[in-house]
Design a protein around this nucleic acid. Structure first.
Length: 259
DNA sequence: ATGGCGTCGGAACGACGA
């Protein structure tokens, strides 16, 4: 089973690009982030025509996450426990009802910039909520894949030019520590399991020729429970997608598990 | 160098992204 994560940067602005990529690569599951629309404006039909079921948690203009699956989708959860009053659409989880099921979450972690604003503590608090929920999920002892745009650059080797990120929320010591604490509850990172080399980036800014200069960062991650690690076969970071017509600024990352 | 570039809402340009 192949499971993709992709921050699509508006699913409606990008639908032709996204459909073209799905048609070519046909992952069993695709987790989207930043769909930037409410559920009634999600182009479900375009994906159903490719054989996907969909589960969506959207909001107007910003954020929004979705899960596409060629298998039936069950046990959908929208949002983390303990939501605030105006909870942003950043987390959706579901069970992919394959012969050997996998619980999958599509995660759009807050950016947190600027660091001296209320957005940075919001990011850190959200990461702690995610960590606590993941502890509960691990107790289920299932095949579990928590993937998405984590908006964290884990290590200097995950940026072409780490110095330009030192004042950025994505590379703050607190963000990186929260990322390690999350991983430390007993999750494994696909990037490490696959032995991807340094310089495997997943995001390049639209601005200033970042793609042309390969000025990228690695911020889109898959985390696996021990039961999913046992099924891990490999991964692909789809760098070529950054050269598609009307590309997202992120590229898809795909892991493969045994069926 | 906080700008570039892209998207949204709503009909100009500010908010937001990373």
């Amino acid at each position: 089973m192949r499971i993709a994560t992709w921050n699509v940067n508006s699913v409606n602005a990008r639908v032709e690009t996204v459909v073209a990529w799905l048609r070519e690569h046909s992952p069993d599951v695709a987790c989207f982030q930043e769909i930037k629309c409410e559920e009634h404006k999600f182009p479900a039909l375009a994906f159903e025509e490719l054989g996907y079921n969909t589960a969506v948690w959207g909001q107007k203009s910003y954020n929004g996450v979705a899960i596409l699956s060629k298998f039936p989708i069950g046990d959908v959860r929208r949002g983390l426990p303990d939501p605030g009053e105006e909870e942003q659409s950043r987390y959706i989880e579901a069970v992919i009802e394959a012969p050997r099921p996998v619980r999958v979450a599509s995660i759009y972690l807050p950016n947190g910039n600027p660091v001296d604003s209320e957005k940075f503590p919001y990011k850190l608090a959200w990461m702690e909520r995610l960590r606590r929920h993941a502890v509960d999920l691990l107790r289920l002892e299932e095949s579990l894949v928590l993937c998405g745009d984590y908006n964290v650059i884990p290590d200097p080797e995950d940026a072409r030019n780490p110095a330009q990120w030192v004042r950025d929320a994505l590379f703050q010591p607190e963000s990186r520590a929260a990322w390690r604490a999350f991983k430390g509850i007993g999750l494994s990172e696909a990037h490490e399991l696959a032995g991807e080399p340094p310089g495997t980036f997943t995001f390049w800014d639209y601005q200033a020729g970042a793609w042309r200069r390969n000025d990228g960062i690695r911020i889109d991650h898959h985390f696996l429970s021990p039961q999913a690690v046992d099924r891990f076969l490999g991964m692909e970071t789809h760098r070529d997608a950054r050269d598609m017509e009307k590309p997202s600024d992120h590229v898809p990352v795909v892991i493969e598990l045994t069926d």
